[in-house]
Design a protein around this nucleic acid. Structure first.
Lengths: 217, 217
DNA sequence: ACCTGAACACCGTTCAAGT
DNA sequence: ACCTGAACACCGTTCAAGT
């Protein structure tokens, strides 16, 4: 299947292939057997280079975080902490848009990837220069939550035509939501593509938090 | 194993048992076979009451959301939208503290639970009475993200004694983080229990967003 | 209507064995 | 040092068969 099966395995190559596999077929496609197949090897061979599947998952989180750090490193610093942080976070977000499966995975990892730590270390440094105390920075990181890394979890996000999937007897119980959505859909000419512009919504929430933090400085 | 194995199966009973199983042994313990065992039945019997495992997962999300709605319904309305929303969200949060596995699961469900919709419908109604336009409410829901439901995803959260788990050569690369954490640990007498008070941090972030929204009203 | 036994195609992981 | 075959214990799911 793979064009070049003669390249020897390595932890690096296993992780890169796992990321590519998740990008193309989703995280559930990343099984030890499928991953090995993609590498032109047997499943058992992977265990020479990684400890277990959890290790693979930790590893691909780190790969994505490294990608974020590279994107951030290419940025120039802005005039103030807020604008610089905003740029970094939006650059990080672009990486997540290339790896749609990653937010859910970041959510489940409790162990901390070195690259994620490095990202936060930089952010702490930036806010320190911006005049925040360590205590405020600590609060700020919690307040930002996953938004500091460029994604936000939205447990309620009706996709395109979502109202069609919800049974009528349920919809009948939701007068406020229906009123809101119909007004939004009416105002938004792009409503057929889904009822919200994710990028705009992300930036709105991000700016709300950044402005709030700046006010506390 | 189960004290009463003679109660007939039902979708209701399957879902309640699944929640109890996740509470006690974590989400990975919720397999069709284990779940059936807990119910004193065979795995195949479950398929008469639920379509497939995804259906079980959607179902237990709805069970938790119903629990939240009950907790919220027991609350009195406060004098203004912000205080009332705050109370509701903190009540919802208590439900998540009883079901630690739930936030990660809510994150992966794309289909929308009726009870979650009902929760949001109430929140929209509250904000409407509070004087927000539908457009602003829509933005507000995105800005709150998972915090509207009472939890927040924090991709970087060193647990108690986390620095011990990070290899020294990595720590050496993190001057800002180390400086911040050592200062926090020094200030906080409870640092041995972990370096942050989750509840206080959650409320800090929540108030930051609620205050920001209130300012836009 | 409700439950099950047998069977299938898949997992992650081990271990002794090959080169 | 690096890779693999055989094997184990576990998945979700089907389907025809039992009561």
């Amino acid at each position: 299947m793979t064009t070049e099966a003669r390249i020897p395995l390595s932890r690096e190559r296993v992780l890169r292939t796992a990321v590519a596999l998740a990008d193309e077929h989703g995280l559930p496609a990343v099984t030890m057997r499928r991953l090995a197949e993609e590498l032109g090897a047997e499943a058992m061979s992977l265990y020479y280079h990684v400890a277990k599947k959890e290790d693979v998952l930790d590893g691909i989180v780190d790969v994505v975080a490294q990608e974020i750090n590279e994107a951030v490193a290419a940025l120039e610093a802005g005039p103030d902490w807020k604008l610089t942080a905003r740029r970094r976070i939006l650059a990080a977000r672009e990486v997540f848009l290339r790896h749609r499966w990653a937010p859910a995975l970041f959510g489940t990892r409790s162990s901390t990837s070195p690259a994620v730590l490095k990202y936060y270390d930089n952010l702490v440094g930036l806010m320190r220069e911006g005049g925040f105390s360590h205590d405020r920075i600590h609060h700020a990181l919690h307040a930002l939550g996953s938004r500091a890394l460029g994604f936000s979890q939205e447990p309620f996000d009706p996709g395109p035509g979502a109202s069609a999937e919800v049974p009528p007897e349920v919809v009948a119980q939701l007068p406020n939501l229906v009123a809101m959505l119909s007004e939004i859909a009416h105002d938004d000419p792009d409503s057929t593509l889904g009822w919200c512009d994710d990028q705009a919504e992300f930036e709105f929430g991000l700016d709300l938090v950044l402005d709030g933090l700046d006010r506390l400085r």
